[in-house]
Design a protein around this nucleic acid. Structure first.
Lengths: 141, 141
DNA sequence: CCGTATCCAACAGGATACTG
DNA sequence: CAGTATCCTGTTGGATACGG
């Protein structure tokens, strides 16, 4: 009865889609997909959230070591914008040398869950994508 | 018993996270989050998938009308890369004037489901984010 | 240690004009 | 209609130097 399950998923999909395309209350310029991309579609935000989720409370340079390739500047910029949106907290300890600890809020953790779903889709679909890509490229000689 | 449910979610989250951080088989440069961002983190890909999912089989200019603000060039570029990754099909009808129809593959539809989850998270979290943002800004005078 | 300030290169993507 | 081709601009983000 796989067909029935697939059918149900399709119907469910259409229902969810319809909400986003026919909601009269929603101003036209408001699009949740665009919002997501504008806020978290940059190079480092999702990686920062992922690492904070895995490591829990983390210091600045510790985090810098875990996110491979990120510059000091971009880590600061990224963390600030995530803090501004309420996805993580920043705690400064008045010590010498200074210590600053970052930690996901519950809102940040809820986004983390969504990211993980996406990551799992990516892991599971990678082979298929790579295969499609090779076929496409070979078709152009 | 909300606590129990929340606890279970947290344990589940940690389990999923651990897979991505401790998988010894995985080469270090392979990160599903980075892959997602590299492929679909651009300005138009997710919007194209979303619209194709809602409208089904769609012609080029029809799609252009639905995705507000996209240029002809970027629609072409976006659709080509999605086709290359096996997320949609492109069918050309040898007519005059020419007709080209785009349609999501089952792989594309599976990504659409993930996008919708994200979109729903965004819709549901928007108020909280806007509020956090205003508080943050007001704290800097 | 944890930033900020400044400069700069690379690239995404918009505008426009042209074609099978 | 459904694209290319070309040009051009704005933004992202890297490198480096400095500061509390």
């Amino acid at each position: 009865m796989e067909v029935t399950i697939a059918d149900n998923q399709l119907i469910d999909l259409q229902k969810k889609l319809k909400v986003f395309f026919t909601d009269e209350e929603r101003p036209h310029e408001f699009c949740p997909v665009r919002d997501i991309m504008d806020r978290f579609g940059d190079k480092w935000s999702l990686l920062a959230i992922l690492n904070l989720g895995y490591s829990g409370k983390t210091r600045f340079n510790e985090l810098k070591g875990k996110i491979e390739g990120i510059s000091q500047r971009m880590l600061t910029v990224t963390l600030r914008s995530l803090e501004r949106d309420g996805l993580l907290t920043r705690k400064i300890y008045a010590e010498v040398p200074p210590r600053v600890e970052y930690e996901l809020t519950s809102l940040g953790k809820s986004l983390l869950q969504q990211i993980l779903e996406l990551a799992q889709w990516s892991s599971g679909s990678m082979d298929e994508i790579v295969k499609a890509r090779m076929e496409y490229d070979s078709r152009l000689q």
